[in-house]
Design a binder for these strands. Structure first.
Lengths: 155, 155
DNA sequence: CTTGAAATGCAATAATATAACATATCATTT
DNA sequence: AAATGATATGTTATATTATTGCATTTCAAG
């Protein structure tokens, strides 16, 4: 897989910090930990997996806690909820004025975010009167690898 | 709202019957009742609402029953699952070779299916190597009415 | 009419998410 | 530094959505 992508977690964190400050939001310790985990993971993560991962070993952590942190991150454009997977992923783009588009592989349950430039045309045509603005568009399918693996003759 | 659309439930049922027969599937009484309800309703319906609606008053009906019927309908191209809403809707198109596209209003929780012609271009660009084939694409947003109602000056 | 496959009934439970209320944290003003 | 008020978090309970496993029924084919 592609560890070459997402090279700069520290940078992303700093940018997030700045972004929150600018918008009057507080990137608290918990929220920061959730965001950092999503960044490190790179792939969509389930809420209850986040809970397991971030809980201090002995203590319990209520689902609410995680969901609230996720709501904050999503609200500030730092993460997406992927309805197709009931999962959450760090946002890798600042979608200035465009609706985010996610390619979601139903086989390996990974996702890729399309850059704005590539997605133009997607939100324009066919939408007559429908205001596609908030949230993301999810395109379900099979990613390159999974499509290849599923093919009869391709290793 | 638009009662003018979806005029021919009997016709759709007959077509579904034929379609299932041709594919070696059995459109049983239960499945037919579920499909018919989805058709009559026209809008996305929750699984547990289907359960309530289709249950014989005194008796109980297990969720499994509904989910299995829905799986069948989806498998035979007669319905879609809308991940955004955790809901199910009758399919109004026969997507010959194209991936269905649904506009989902997050405000009123209704959906509209885009005809294939209108959706072309949607699945082509930007997908390099990603095989968008099964399932539907969901574009979340606000429908005309809701967008208008949300606007300050528009009644 | 038997038989085997498919469908349904039924009970339990898993996975995902929210509500309501108490407590803690933190920036700001005194 | 203490008081205050807003924001965030903890805690408990519960709602919503979905699946699993096994028993029974239905139904078309032989």
């Amino acid at each position: 897989m592609d560890e070459t992508r997402r090279p700069d977690i520290a940078g992303q964190l700093a940018e997030a910090e700045a972004r929150c400050a600018a918008r009057g939001g507080r990137l608290t310790r918990l929220r920061r930990r959730v965001f950092e985990f999503l960044l490190q993971c790179g792939n969509p993560v389930k809420a209850y997996d986040l809970q397991d991962a971030l809980r201090i070993p002995g203590k319990r952590m209520a689902p609410t806690t995680i969901y609230r942190a996720l709501d904050f991150l999503i609200g500030h454009g730092l993460a997406h909820r992927i309805d197709t997977l009931n999962a959450y992923v760090a946002c890798t783009d600042r979608h200035e004025g465009h609706q985010p588009v996610l390619l979601v592989c139903s086989l390996c349950e990974k996702s890729v975010e399309i850059a704005d430039a590539d997605a133009s045309g997607l939100t324009d045509a066919a939408l007559a009167g429908f205001l596609a603005r908030t949230d993301s568009i999810e395109i379900k399918g099979a990613c390159k690898q999974c499509a290849a693996n599923a093919q009869p003759g391709t290793p």
